[in-house]
């Protein structure tokens, strides 16, 4: 089981990698989304907000997210460090992503562009 701070660290790494990638920022400048990240086995909630190509992170929940990423703490930490692709846990049901199918795919594309295959 990962701790809340590990998930926070992984999300910071994800956020920093996103914001350092000018191409990715440009590609997502018209994709404004609020993404909630929730662990199922520990008390841990985060919100990633993408506005005009800038990704920000804060602890706690958003009231009306566009996407909700739900999984156990281990999977979430591995996921945002890029050690596992979202697709594997998503297809075996370990990872749940609530939101539109297009948004789910876009999130996976972003992960792929940050971390590669």
């Amino acid at each position: 089981m990962a701790e809340h701070c590990e998930i926070t660290e992984s999300l910071k790494v994800f956020r920093d990698n996103f914001n350092q990638n000018e191409r990715l920022k440009k590609m997502n400048r018209d994709w404004d989304r609020v993404i909630a990240i929730k662990a199922t086995d520990i008390d841990s909630l985060h919100t990633l907000t993408l506005r005009k190509g800038d990704l920000s992170l804060r602890e706690g929940a958003s009231e009306t997210p566009d996407l909700v990423v739900i999984s156990d703490s281990e999977t979430l930490a591995d996921l945002f460090y890029g050690d596992v692709t979202p697709t594997e846990p998503y297809l075996n049901g370990t990872l749940k992503i609530q939101g539109s199918e297009d948004d789910i795919i876009r999130l996976d594309f972003i992960s792929l562009m940050i971390w590669g295959e």
Partner: peptide, 18 residues
């Protein structure tokens, strides 16, 4: 391709159109 059951080349995405 992303879950590594099909060749990785199929996971290539268009950076322009996603």
């Amino acid at each position: 391709a992303r879950e590594h059951v099909l060749p990785a080349v199929l996971s290539r995405i268009s950076p322009r159109f996603f």
